[in-house]
Write a protein that binds this DNA or RNA. Structure first.
Length: 279
DNA sequence: AGCACA
């Protein structure tokens, strides 16, 4: 155990603190999106199990959890996780930043979910689930009438763990065919970029200023500095923190939140690909 | 729909 030869699975396992996550979190959806649309968007992806659409009722933001369940024929879950990282790359390549509705201009944002959906989908039940909190606090569930409609998709899966969910998946082997032919070499960098103490902020409005960002981010512990880059197009920004944990908290706190300058929905925040250089 | 600074 002292030294491991290079092994991408091992590297991925070491790098990813959320290796048990098999759920994608999709945001940037217009509030009139239909679960059917989401389902059609992802259903053909290998390993796809089900999806859940939640209308938050806040600021025209629908959000969606798309679940992928992988089961490794080798037994070691790292293979499944490695495959899952492929899928994330795929979806990002195919969908990330795509204007879901050219009229409304909603921009898709796909990332690894913070936690798995607790929902267990029984075979034969609906392919998707809708939770609508727009009008009343009451959940409107369809697609699986006997389902536990109130379980929160953002909460970690319970004591049974995700393997219990995996067990309900019929296919014992995921085939990566024409729909997802990717070579392993393309994925040296990890599933979604590893955690970083610098945050990358996108989906800012054209009138956003560095000062506005500073006021927003500087109240959080560990804040170092913020830098904005415009590069001709829409501005993006980097916010640096001392520790990864601090950056993580800020990302969770501010994900999707609006600035006064925002004109295209809330901020999209990810870990930056590299730490901001020190001055 | 986007990841720079050295």
């Amino acid at each position: 155990m002292a030294h491991q030869p290079f092994d991408p699975y091992y590297a991925y396992q070491q790098q990813d603190e959320r290796s048990h996550i098999n759920t994608l979190f999709v945001s940037g959806l217009p509030d009139d999106v239909k679960a059917r649309e989401i389902h059609n968007l992802f259903r053909r992806r290998p390993g796809f199990d089900s999806c859940q659409l939640k209308y938050t009722g806040r600021a025209n933001q629908a959000r969606c959890c798309v679940c992928y369940f992988f089961q490794s024929s080798i037994g070691d879950g790292s293979i499944a996780r490695f495959k899952f990282s492929y899928v994330i790359s795929f979806l990002r390549g195919d969908h990330q930043g795509v204007k879901f509705d050219p009229q409304a201009g909603s921009v898709l944002h796909i990332e690894l979910a913070r936690s798995n959906s607790r929902r267990k989908r029984k075979p034969g039940s609906g392919a998707y689930v809708v939770i609508d909190k727009r009008s009343k606090g009451e959940a409107d569930v369809q697609g699986s009438s006997s389902d536990d409609g109130d379980s929160d998709p953002d909460e970690p899966s319970g004591s049974g763990g995700s393997h219990g969910d995996l067990a309900t998946t019929k296919s014992s082997e995921i085939k990566f065919g024409s729909d997802s032919a990717v070579s392993a070499e393309q994925h040296e960098r990890g599933p979604d970029g590893g955690p970083c103490s610098t945050l990358f902020i996108a989906n800012l409005g054209p009138n956003c200023t560095e000062d506005e960002l500073r006021q927003t981010f500087s109240v959080y512990a560990g804040f170092n500095m913020v830098k904005m880059r415009s590069r001709g197009g829409m501005p993006v920004a980097f916010a640096d923190f001392d520790e990864v944990e601090q950056a993580t908290k800020v990302m969770e706190q501010l994900q999707g939140s609006m600035l006064s300058s925002s004109d295209r929905g809330g901020m999209h925040i990810e870990y930056a690909r590299s730490k901001m250089r020190k001055h």
